[in-house]
Every structure is written in structure tokens, then in C-alpha cells.
Design a protein around this nucleic acid. Structure first.
Lengths: 247, 247
DNA sequence: TTGACTTATATGTCTAGACATATAATCGTG
DNA sequence: CACGATTATATGTCTAGACATATAAGTCAA
């Protein structure tokens, strides 16, 4: 059948589309606490009746809310407001070269050290692997307009990424190389603050004892560790910005 | 028509569903660099032919990739791999009380100062408003198992949230109160590192000069500022963790 | 050449209905 | 009462087709 006569779906008046309205309605009820954590959201067929639309339209709204972790959907049981009422921000951490060039500044890269070796026990602990294999250990520095931007200390597991043995990290930063050669399936960032030690201060050209933002990133492909990297940014100048929308 | 005879959609063999397979296929091509930024992804009707499925199935896969900012979709033009090839992490920043209780530790809260006043010029600059209205300024401390966890310095715009004038911030932390009373539509976090000054060191019970992680959060409802808050965490012990999946 | 108008097309949204699947709830049985 | 089998039900996925809308591309006149 044609629906044009049944249901106006025109957007000529500038109103948001129906599924977005449904999504916003539910989202608002959750965020204001009207529907607290654990509350059961009306069934799809009830929302169909309330909004006079098809199940796919309701489903699209609920799917997006589930993807955003605001609700939890369980077969047969229903749909519920998730317990930890948290804010959720999409933090975009670009490849450093892309980040710097996007700011309109010139990107510089210096390899400090690159060593291929059999994994030490410290390496194995850092990568979270138990068997001894080969690794590549890299220390390097990124700069913007010739000012130090971040120093990087990285370990790549060659048993997961054997191709990395042939990459030329004197020319291409390891982060860029990995991004373009290895698909990751999971990653974890940990952000913390430290004060600069002797070596870091020297490499970033800041004072010993100055604050640094530290990002530790682990990347996996399936169940295998790809790389572990620690980045030091000068804390006075660098900022991580995460902007996000609730509606 | 029924499709059961045309197209097996059974998942008995444990295979992922079709739209997820399409999404993963495209995602892998993007993340390996096979389809670089700017590359045009096949049109929906081409993907329909390739995967022998309906347009809605292809559309669901592409919509999710667009939501994840991996691709950009433009009417008439097509679908393209987005330019800044970035990692994207969902950083979940819970309400502090929820965060602490989720760790199985006892939550403590002390109001240090709470002042209702007409906005000073510094207040207006911080909130990003030009007109002089009333604000609430709050300083407080959160602790876990009686150890200082974070100190908070907050400004609430009463012209946006007049109800906040009647809230009792001596009993309920302002973050929790706001989360349950005010729907936000947009927010921004900025994460940086500093060293503890005299006052912060005293409030967090750490040494002057010790590293602190600082989170600045601004929250808006529509175009109106709701609140601006700055949180200081002891950098040695606190970590922000963002775990995310690429598949 | 340039700007206004028209057209073609790819995505955006929506429908009514189908089958698939996990699981809460119920029912029987030892 | 405890526990395994059955049933009902809400969500998960998918289809074929329709109309809506933004806009790239082509057309034509000033």
C-alpha cells in the first residue's frame, strides 16, 4: 500500500522526523529522571500505538538509544533504562600527524630510538602476552611548527603484526603506519597526569616537574595485542576536547 | 511475499547477521586503508546487488557507520570515507557518586562553600553569557572510603535552571542533582594536566606540585548554558579509562 | 561567462508483514 | 518443592516498495 494518504511524513514544516522525535522523547524522560534506571520502557507495540507508526520506526529510535548505551534491550523481557546514569562523550583522538596538520601547523617527526628485540619480561607484561616473541620498541617525538608536541614510547608485537618488521619508522610515524596497515578490533585508552621526569622534560623541552598529560593506548586485533603506546603531552598547552550531543 | 524461500537469513550456524557483516566488511576496508579518506563507497543499490539483500539492510549498515563518524553520506552525491582517519572512543564519565559506589567504595561528600550571587564578570565569562543574572557557585569535595577523590568547583546559571535555587547542595552533590533534574542537550569536556596549587593540595590531601588531572565540563540546554564545572583529581591515583570496539 | 532554472539521482524515512531467536513464565512430573 | 520441558512473547532481522528531499549536473538565457 501507499502511505501518503494515511500518515503525513512530510517534513516541510521543518519538524524533525518521527523516529528522531521518539528518540528525543524517550531520551528526555531518561535524562530528567522521569524514567529512572531500571524503568521499563513501553513495548514496541505500545509505542507504535502512541505514535501511530510502524514497528520499524519505533525500532530505529530504540536501536539508536541502545547503541548509545542509554537503554538495554532484552528479548521477551522488554527494554529498560540502563543503571549507571552516565554522561557519554565521544572522544576523538586523531592520529597525531592528522591532528597537527588539521590545526594548520607543520608536522615534524623525529625517531629517537628503534629496536627490534626478543620480548623482555617487562615487554611481555606491558603487552599482556605470556609467550616470548619478537617486538619492536620505538621512541619518537612529534612536533608542531618545530615545537615539541608529544613524545611517544611504543611497543609493537611482531607475532601479531609481522609486517611491522619491514616498516621504515625513521620515515613514517608508527601510529600512522599501523592505522593504515592493521585493522584493530578493540582498544583502550587510559588518561592520567604526571609531572615531567628528567628525560621527558628534555624531550619535550619543558621544565622538570611540569605537568604532563599521559595517554596509554592498547590496541588489539581479535584476542591478540597489536601495540601498546604511551604518549606524553605538555599539560600546560595540550588539551583533550570532547564535545558531544545529548539530543 | 515471504522471503524464507528466497534468502536464508537463519543464524543457526552462529554466523553474524547480514547487516553486521556488511558493516564489518566496509569498516575493515576503511581501517586497513584499502578505502582511504575521500573514497566513495559503492552506492546502496550496488551493495544490494553484491550482498543480494534489500536496501533497508544495506542502509542499516551504512547508517551505523555514519553514526560512528567513519563515513559521511550526502544526498545525490553518495557515501564517502571521512577525512580525519581517527580513533573514536566513547569515554564514559559517570556521575561521581555512581562512579565511586560502582567501585564498591563508600561515597562521602562535603560541601565546602555554596554561594548565591549576581554573576560577576568572571562568572559571565566562564559561563559564556553576556547578561547579568543570578548564579550559584559551589565548591565541594567527593571522597571514596574517606580518602579525597576529587574536588569540584561549579557554577550554575539560575536563569537557565531557576529550580537550582531551592536545591539543598549540602545534602545532595550538585552533579547528581542536575543529572536528575535538568535535561542537557550538549556538553563539552576538556581534559588537561596541572600541578597542585596550595588550595587544591590541601583539599585533596596531596603535596603541592603533585600532578592533577583536570576535567572542565560545560553543559548546555538548547542554546543556554546550564553549568560549568572544574574537577581536580589526584593524577597519581586517578585514571580515565575509555574502552571501545572497532568491530 | 555567469547565474537562474530544471532534472536526475542517491540518500532519508516510512510501511505492513514475515520469520528467527532468546527467554520469562507456565506447566508437569518426580 | 525442585527441576526439566513447553509455551508465549518481545525483540532482532529482513523484505519489497513507496514517497520525501537535498543537491550535483545539465540546460538555457542574459
Amino acid at each position: 500500500m501507499s502511505l501518503a494518504s494515511d500518515q503525513p511524513k512530510s517534513n516541510a514544516a521543518g519538524k524533525p522526523t518521527l523516529y528522531k522525535r521518539i528518540r528525543l522523547d524517550i531520551e528526555t524522560r531518561i535524562l530528567t529522571g522521569e524514567w529512572p534506571p531500571g524503568h521499563r520502557i513501553p513495548f514496541e507495540h505500545q509505542l507504535m500505538a502512541r505514535y501511530r507508526c510502524s514497528r520499524m520506526t519505533v525500532n530505529k529510535a530504540l536501536s539508536e538509544l541502545a547503541q548509545a548505551d542509554l537503554i538495554e534491550r532484552r528479548r521477551r523481557a522488554g527494554t529498560f533504562v540502563r543503571r549507571p546514569q552516565h554522561l557519554s562523550a565521544v572522544l576523538k583522538i586523531a592520529d597525531i600527524r592528522a591532528e597537527i596538520t588539521a590545526l594548520g601547523r607543520s608536522y615534524g617527526y623525529q625517531l629517537i630510538e628503534c629496536q627490534r628485540r626478543t620480548a623482555t619480561s617487562a615487554d611481555r607484561a606491558r603487552l599482556g602476552v605470556s609467550t616470548a616473541g619478537k617486538v619492536v620498541a620505538i621512541a619518537c617525538r612529534h612536533s608542531a611548527d618545530n615545537v615539541p608536541f608529544a613524545v611517544e614510547d611504543r611497543l609493537i608485537d611482531l607475532s601479531t603484526v609481522p609486517e611491522a618488521a619491514d616498516a621504515d619508522f625513521a620515515r613514517e610515524p608508527p601510529g600512522s603506519w599501523l592505522l593504515h596497515h592493521v585493522p584493530w578490533t578493540e582498544a583502550e585508552h587510559t588518561i592520567s597526569a604526571v609531572v615531567a621526569d628528567d628525560r621527558t622534560a628534555k624531550e619535550l623541552d619543558i621544565a622538570v616537574g611540569a605537568p604532563c598529560l599521559v595517554i596509554d593506548r592498547y590496541t588489539w586485533r581479535s584476542a591478540r595485542t597489536v601495540t601498546a603506546v604511551r604518549l606524553h603531552y605538555p599539560g600546560e598547552t595540550h588539551r583533550l576536547v570532547a564535545r558531544f550531543k545529548g539530543g
